[in-house]
Design a protein around this nucleic acid. Structure first.
Lengths: 135, 135
DNA sequence: CTAAACCTTGCCATAAGGTTAAGGTCAAAT
DNA sequence: ATTTGACCTTAACCTTATGGCAAGGTTTAG
């Protein structure tokens, strides 16, 4: 139960890197971990759960700033789930916006690429349209 | 025909910022522009066309490094259009990959958000799943 | 003549790390 | 007992593509 992991072990288990864990500590996302006499960081299972929480949230694209809020809500037993959902939906909107932007680029790029034969001749619709049109 | 623009005017016309134009010059993307006696940069129509080319390529999500290649191909009358098309298609692949990643996040996030009532109670499926599941 | 609106360089900050350096520590093998 | 190799420490710089600010010079309009 009381197993303590070094930063490398915690990194391996959580899927983060040791560097990320140190960064999260320095930026205040997680509390400073206790150290051995020689200065090695040690992580208990509670802190490991926090690290895995962070890893999962990063996988979903949440910013570290959002994750700070999520961690704080997670640890507050009197939270309102409304605030959590707001965060998630705001993030979802950003994702949708980003997808729409990328799809717009994709459409234009496909048209451009179609207008270029892609052979050994210099003639190329991509360059022509980048040079002239109002894309 | 021989109109010369200051950096602020060139920025306005191209849609870039003066800061970006200076950065592009310093990073070697565009050549150093001529200056007035007092040191102000001046842009002629050819350089303005380059700036607009850059702006359009940025709007399509090309990196500055890609744009360096595109500019070089554009200015080389003996280019092979094949190389231009390769660049565009490689960029298209990156866009598709990014879209797929975002859509994956989107799907998971929608499920998570659905599992949270979003009211004034602390109970929240988003936090629960970030805390436990293997997302 | 002066004040606003330009322009200049240079440095710092962002997000989220990766990389490298220079050095301390620990455990196992010799 | 010592050495080796894997691990840990901090610090500092690199990345991408800008934004922002400071401190100062220039130009233009009133």
């Amino acid at each position: 139960m009381g197993t303590l992991l070094t930063i490398g072990e915690a990194a391996k288990v959580s899927g983060l890197t040791a560097k990320m864990i140190r960064n999260y500590e320095q930026s205040g996302l997680i509390r400073k971990s206790p150290r051995t006499e020689s200065g090695y960081r040690l992580y208990n299972s509670e802190q490991l759960n926090q690290l895995m929480f962070i890893k999962r949230a990063r996988n979903l694209g949440f910013s570290l700033s959002d994750i700070q809020s999520l961690l704080s809500l997670w640890q507050n037993p009197e939270r309102e789930s409304r605030l959590v959902k707001q965060l998630a939906q705001s993030h979802l909107e950003q994702i949708s916006t980003k997808i729409a932007e990328l799809e717009q680029m994709q459409q234009v790029l496909i048209k451009l690429a179609d207008s270029c034969k892609g052979d050994t001749s210099p003639q190329c619709g991509i360059l022509e349209q980048l040079a002239q049109s109002s894309i």
